[in-house]
């Protein structure tokens, strides 16, 4: 077992593991954000890029009664998360919905319904 380092090169931001599923009507993103709840996650869309930013809640970032404990084996650090996704024009930005549960974020991005173009022909 390697001992926990005393000085870490911990990344300042983690790129959360995200699944992307496509159905007929939408794109669904499922991202793992342990330690995060609805109050500490931010999703924004600008110029076709969806930006996800989140912070682990303070109560989760370090263990309960942190001062009593000494880390002896460390496989993760809980730091801020950030990831960007480029969305196609096919996505209806107005209708994006998201929910988070047990540190797992689910974002539903509906595809734009194809507009049936009816072209009226006038008699000239």
């Amino acid at each position: 077992m390697t001992p926990a380092p005393t000085a870490t090169l911990a990344p300042r931001r983690l790129r959360p593991r995200t699944d992307v599923l496509e159905t007929n009507d939408a794109l669904i993103l499922v991202a793992d954000l342990p330690g995060v709840d609805e109050g500490s996650v931010e999703l924004s869309l600008a110029d076709g890029v969806l930006t996800l930013r989140a912070k682990p809640v303070a109560a989760n970032a370090s263990p309960s009664n942190a001062s009593e404990w000494k880390a002896v084996w460390s496989e993760f650090t809980l730091v801020d998360y950030e990831r960007r996704f480029r969305l196609s024009a096919e996505i209806d930005g107005e209708a994006i919905a998201a929910s988070i549960q047990q540190g797992r974020l689910r974002v539903t991005l509906p595809k734009r319904r194809p507009r049936a173009n009816r072209i009226e022909v006038k008699a000239s």
Partner: peptide
Amino acid sequence: PITVYSKDDGCLVRALVPGLA
């Protein structure tokens, strides 16, 4: 992934299990 902390009379194991109840 897990992180293990210890003190004199025991230890604390933290694991990341997002999505699980």
